[in-house]
Structures are given as C-alpha cells and as structure tokens.
Design a protein around this nucleic acid. Structure first.
Lengths: 207, 207
DNA sequence: TACTTAAGTGAGCGCCACTTACTTTGTCAA
DNA sequence: TTGACAAAGTAAGTGGCGCTCACTTAAGTA
C-alpha cells in the first residue's frame, strides 16, 4: 500500500482529497439528508473527476462509514470540551456532557442520523466500532467518577449505559419532526438534569 | 380523484398495488437497508412495470414515508397487544410496553431505522406525524394510569416522554452493532424494569 | 353504446455508482 | 541524475435507477 520508506501516506496531486471529501459529504448530508448525496457531487465539490474518490474509498458505503467515524470523533471531542473545567464526576459535569451530546445532534442532525443510522457493513468497520467505544468512554469515566467506583465494574457500566440511552433517545426524538412543538417534551437542560438525577439516584440506592 | 360515485378507491387491474408495494419495500429494506432498495425492484417484486408505482406515490420519498407510517401503526398495535390483560398502569404493563417496543426494533431493525431516520419532507407528511402521536399515546395513557393523574397534565406528559426516550435510546443502541456484545448493556427485561422504576420513582418524588 | 377516468405499460432522458485503461507526479534506489 | 515504481487523478464507458410522458386497458356511469 504505502511505500515502506515514506513515513505517512503523502498526498500528491491534490491537497488532501480524502479529508476534503469527508468535509464535502458532511455538508451535503446536512443539506439534503443521508440518502440525498452522491459521490459525483462530492467529487465536484472537491474539484476532482468523478472517479477520483475511488482511489480513497472502496465504495459509497465506505465513504459514509468514514464520515460517520469522523462524526463520532467530533462528538467525543465536543463532550470532552463540555466537561472541561467542571469537577470530575459532578452532576454538573455529567449534565454538561449530556447537553453537549444533544447540542451536537441538533446542530448537525443529518450527520447525527448518519452516525447511528448505518445499516450496512458494520462487521467490516472496526474503525466505526472503536470510534463509538471511545465516545462512550467519556460517559463511562464521568459516571465512574460520580459514583466513586471503577469504570470496570459492571454496575457502573450499566448506569453509564442508562445515561447514554436516555440522552441518545432524547437527542434522536428532538431532531425528529414527528414530535416537534408537542407538549410533554421538556427543555433540554431540565430534561438532562432530571433524567441524570433519576438514574444516578437509582444507582446509589443499590441499582 | 376518486370517482364521486364509488364508495372506495377500487383497485382495477392489480389486486391492491399500493399495499403490495409497501409490503415489498418492507422486505427489501429489511434485507438491504433503507438506502439499498429501489422502486424498480419493489415494482418487480409486485409484478408490475417500473412506472406503475408512480400512480400511487408521488416519488421515492413518499413511498418511504408510507412505509414508515405503516411501521408506526404496527408498532402501536404491538404495544397495545403487549399490555393486554395486564392491570392498566401497573409496572408490569409499562414494562411490557417497553419490551414490545424493543422487540419490534430488534425484529425489524431496517424498518425501525427507517421509521426514525427519515430526514426529508416531514412538513409534507401529517400522516407520519399523526402515526407517531398515536404510538406515543399508548405510553402516555399507561403513564397516566400509573401515576393516577390525567394524561393532559404536563407532569405526566414529561414522565411519559422520559420513559419513551429511555426505551427508544436502548432500542436504537441495541440494533446498532457499534456496541454489540459489549459489557455494560444489560438484559432487556432488567433494563426496562430498572429504568422505568427510576423514572416513575422520580415522578412520585415530586418530579 | 359512448364517455370518463383510474391503473398500468413501455420507451426514453439524465444522473449516478462503479470499472477500466490511461496519464501524471512524487519518491527512492542505483 | 536518472529511471523504475507506485500513488493519485482523468476520461470514457456500462448498467441501473428515478422519473416523465404518450399511450393502452379496464371499470363504472349515463
């Protein structure tokens, strides 16, 4: 693949087509939905011929997977930034992480849906799975800090998972027009705090 | 549109192409993912020419929306059936509804993702929004029964929404391979009971 | 029987995913 | 310095799909 002598895969003709394609696809997905983008259009946006993307991605799905992985990494960074400066494991920190998650989904609903909507080729993509794990690790560590137990214990993992699903479910339903402007959906901040307190409380009470 | 004199839109040549197309698309979506189906393939499965579907659906997205609405109705029926025979508002009934929701997602992940993954044309589809409302109503009523308050009160709606998001989040993450076989994800039944108890408990404690 | 209209046909247009053969360009070894 | 090599990009072509349009068929009405 890469010449053994060069340290990194250098980009010859174009600047860095791979990264630029991911960027272009992100914009297209946001503008027209995950199914409304085309490789040809992304190539045009990057100023290359329609065949060029295939030098970097095996096929359409591989490109989408790369965009999703990239998105998960961005989500992880956003969550890390949100808790920065807050006391580790504090309810404030946990709420901030949840709010960052929700804000991410609302700001980039197309990308968010893509990240969690891919049906195909999971098996092939260890990259995607690992990106998901790394993002979850942020929640897991905050939970461990909060309850004062190791992140390796199954009780902590369970509670962290509960927190994740709550926020994930809210984020997903929030960007879904089916329930827009409907009574019963609380304000994000209030929601995250109440839900987190309920889950963490049930943990403290012995699961 | 429909001749004023006929009571129902009769189906002339074909049996009921509209319904058969939805059926075919459901199978295709399950087999190949939401983006992996084509109108042409669905038409072939129904034994008609490639132009025929356009007599029943404006375009590809309209067909997908119809499939999603149909899926939401099926989900609603499944939840109703699950709570049948259980004491209204009991924790058993609420857990049964949640489990039916999760079972639905696991049994038909392609359809489930389609139902909640559509990015486009929400505005145009009152049908889709209403199908979502009707499904939510099942959870809302069970919650109202449980806490002994009217489904019209905002506190009850909030709690019902919390329950919905929890189950929705878990269902979504369950069918997502990113976290398959990973520690920290509890058994469905245990999950639903613990999560429901935590949420309903926080309601009883005065929100 | 003639009229109307929904339902379906089949050909055709443009776009797209993907392939293949070819050219260009940077890198390294001799 | 040069010449071989591999990565990166091009151009043209194939087949399939979304969608349209002019047309035919079938059912109900008067």
């Amino acid at each position: 693949m890469t010449p053994a002598t060069s340290k990194e895969p250098r980009n010859f003709h174009h600047g860095d087509l791979r990264a630029q394609l991911i960027l272009a696809v992100r914009a297209l997905v946001e503008a027209q939905g995950a199914d409304g983008f085309s490789i040809a259009e992304a190539a045009r946006a990057a100023g290359v011929s329609s065949g060029a993307p295939y030098k970097h991605f095996e096929d359409r799905r591989a490109l989408l997977r790369a965009v999703a992985s990239d998105g998960l990494e961005r989500l992880r960074v956003a969550m890390l930034a949100a808790k920065d400066g807050l006391r580790p494991g504090s309810l404030d920190a946990i709420a901030a992480i949840g709010l960052a998650y929700i804000a991410f989904a609302k700001a980039q609903p197309g990308l968010f849906r893509l990240m969690f909507g891919l049906t195909d080729g999971h098996e092939k993509s260890a990259e995607l799975a690992e990106a998901g794990q790394r993002a979850f690790a942020v929640v897991l560590e905050a939970t461990a800090d909060h309850v004062g137990q190791s992140a390796a214990t199954s009780a902590v993992q369970e509670t962290a998972y509960l927190l994740w699903t709550l926020v994930h479910g809210h984020a997903f339903l929030s960007i879904d027009a089916k329930r827009k402007d409907q009574a019963g959906r609380p304000d994000d901040e209030y929601y995250v705090r109440r839900a987190s307190a309920a889950i963490l409380g049930s943990h403290d009470r012995g699961l």
